[in-house]
Design a protein around this nucleic acid. Structure first.
Length: 284
DNA sequence: TTGTGTTTTATTGCCTCC
DNA sequence: GGAGGCAATAAAACACAA
């Protein structure tokens, strides 16, 4: 420590100032300055100003005893702190004079007050961050539940497709998958997974108005967030043709839906074969 | 009355700035 | 190098439950 720093203890009771020379090497620190055997006359924490200035109380105190500031002193200090939480030397002297305290005491009070303010501020910041976190967590939970729901929808729809495929002999889905896609017959739309996640309507993307109301999902949310998933919707040419031939139009529009990865679409654009993993849906 | 927890006042040591 | 700020800490003052 810096030797020679001067410490003051203001004694309001008898208008005497006691001075301490702080020096750790000499063993002066806190308790060592005071006589611990001294009996203490307790006063209530919330006392009236009159009680606080009770001469008898102060006269019985040892000059070294640590004393609480009066409520008036604290009020004035609080007011001053609200105006400016840093203390210029001039203001410190003025306040000290006004309060009947040592400038050092005023400085210490401001120092401690800044520390309390900082603690409170940290608590406020923590509360703000926590509520923000809780809100995000709630949003995440909602999205996760919706995701689960959509996954089960996909499973259910796939099961229906399996049933349909078995009910239509002579048209193995595997042949369909192998067909090259007639580009002029398709509508392509894109859905970015991360946009999907952040939009208000969690869940399904809908084909534009000109298209049949086929609801298409991104199949699963296993795609990396920044990957695009392409859904390709095409009229089921073969089935339409077959219906026209045998007059078995049941009033349904048939569509082939393919879901491809970004890589697969690139392959398709490069004239390479596609590995389709979508299947056929129909809508009434 | 006593033990325990909290608040307030003050000290110490280190750091930065001028 | 001195002044002042800050973090860590001590210790008195105080509140309160058992």
């Amino acid at each position: 420590m810096e030797s020679g720093r001067l410490y003051f203890d203001n004694n309001r009771g008898n208008n005497m100032n006691t001075f301490f020379l702080g020096n750790a090497d000499l063993g002066f620190r806190g308790r060592s300055m005071m006589s611990m055997e001294e009996g203490s006359k307790r006063r209530p924490f919330f006392s009236s100003p009159d009680e606080l200035y009770d001469e008898e109380y102060y006269e019985e105190q040892s000059p070294e005893k640590k004393r609480r500031l009066t409520s008036e002193q604290v009020n004035l200090l609080e007011k001053s702190f609200e105006e400016e939480n840093k203390l210029e030397p001039e203001r410190k002297t003025q306040l000290a004079k006004k309060l009947g305290l040592q400038p050092r005491q005023v400085a210490v009070w401001f120092q401690n007050r800044r520390a309390r303010w900082k603690t409170k501020q940290l608590e406020r910041d923590y509360d703000v961050l926590k509520s923000s976190y809780d809100s995000l967590l709630a949003t995440y939970d909602t999205i996760a539940k919706e995701n689960e729901k959509l996954k089960s929808e996909v499973v259910s729809l796939n099961e229906k497709l399996q049933v349909q495929a078995t009910e239509m002999p002579g048209e193995p889905p595997s042949d369909k998958k192998a067909d090259p896609l007639p580009v002029d017959m398709v509508q392509i739309f894109s859905m970015k997974v991360e946009d999907h996640m952040s939009s208000g309507s969690v869940g399904s993307a809908v084909v534009d108005e000109g298209s049949p109301q086929l609801v298409v999902d991104s199949v699963d949310s296993y795609f990396p967030a920044d990957n695009y998933v392409e859904c390709v919707v095409a009229p089921a040419a073969e089935r339409v043709q077959s219906e026209e031939e045998d007059g078995s139009d049941d009033g349904r529009s048939y569509l082939d839906v393919f879901v491809i990865s970004e890589t697969e679409q690139q392959n398709h654009e490069n004239g390479e074969g596609l590995n389709w993993w979508g299947n056929m849906y129909y809508v009434a």
